[in-house]
Computed example of a mutant assay.
Amino acid sequence: MRLCDEDIKKWIFKKKLIITPIPNMKKIHGATIDIRLSNKFRIFKKSYNSIIDLKKSSKNIKYVLEQNISDEICIANNKSFILKPRNFVLALTIEKISMPNDLIGWLDGRSSLARLGLMIHMTSHRIDPGWNGKIVLELFNAGNFILALTPGMFIAALSFEVLSGICSKPYNYNNRSKYFNQENIISSLIYKE
Results as ranks from 00 to 15, higher is better:
residue 1 M to A: 12
residue 5 D to Y: 09
residue 6 E to N: 15
residue 6 E to D: 14
residue 6 E to H: 15
residue 9 K to C: 12
residue 13 F to P: 02
residue 16 K to M: 13
residue 16 K to T: 10
residue 16 K to W: 10
residue 17 L to E: 04
residue 17 L to N: 02
residue 18 I to L: 12
residue 19 I to T: 09
residue 20 T to P: 01
residue 20 T to M: 10
residue 21 P to T: 09
residue 21 P to F: 06
residue 25 M to D: 14
residue 27 K to Q: 13
residue 28 I to P: 00
residue 28 I to L: 05
residue 28 I to W: 00
residue 30 G to S: 14
residue 30 G to F: 13
residue 31 A to N: 14
residue 31 A to R: 08
residue 33 I to C: 04
residue 33 I to W: 03
residue 34 D to I: 00
residue 34 D to K: 05
residue 37 L to P: 02
residue 41 F to Y: 12
residue 42 R to S: 13
residue 43 I to E: 13
residue 47 S to C: 11
residue 47 S to I: 11
residue 48 Y to H: 11
residue 51 I to Y: 07
residue 54 L to S: 11
residue 55 K to Q: 14
residue 56 K to T: 13
residue 57 S to P: 06
residue 58 S to K: 04
residue 58 S to F: 08
residue 58 S to I: 07
residue 59 K to G: 10
residue 66 E to I: 04
residue 67 Q to C: 07
residue 73 I to V: 11
residue 75 I to A: 00
residue 76 A to I: 07
residue 78 N to Q: 11
residue 79 K to Q: 13
residue 83 L to T: 05
residue 84 K to R: 10
residue 84 K to G: 01
residue 86 R to F: 10
residue 89 V to F: 01
residue 90 L to I: 04
residue 91 A to C: 02
residue 92 L to M: 09
residue 94 I to R: 06
residue 95 E to K: 07
residue 98 S to T: 15
residue 100 P to N: 07
residue 109 G to P: 05
residue 110 R to I: 06
residue 113 L to C: 03
residue 114 A to L: 09
residue 115 R to F: 00
residue 118 L to C: 02
residue 119 M to V: 11
residue 121 H to L: 04
residue 122 M to E: 06
residue 125 H to Y: 12
residue 128 D to N: 12
residue 128 D to I: 03
residue 129 P to M: 09
residue 130 G to R: 00
residue 130 G to D: 00
residue 131 W to Q: 03
residue 138 E to H: 04
residue 141 N to Q: 01
residue 144 N to A: 10
residue 150 T to K: 15
residue 150 T to A: 02
residue 152 G to R: 00
residue 152 G to I: 05
residue 153 M to G: 01
residue 153 M to N: 07
residue 154 F to K: 09
residue 156 A to T: 00
residue 156 A to N: 01
residue 160 F to W: 06
residue 162 V to K: 15
residue 170 P to V: 08
residue 177 S to I: 02
residue 178 K to T: 08
residue 179 Y to M: 02
residue 184 N to L: 14
residue 185 I to A: 05
residue 189 L to A: 11
residue 191 Y to C: 02
residue 193 E to R: 14
residue 193 E to Q: 13
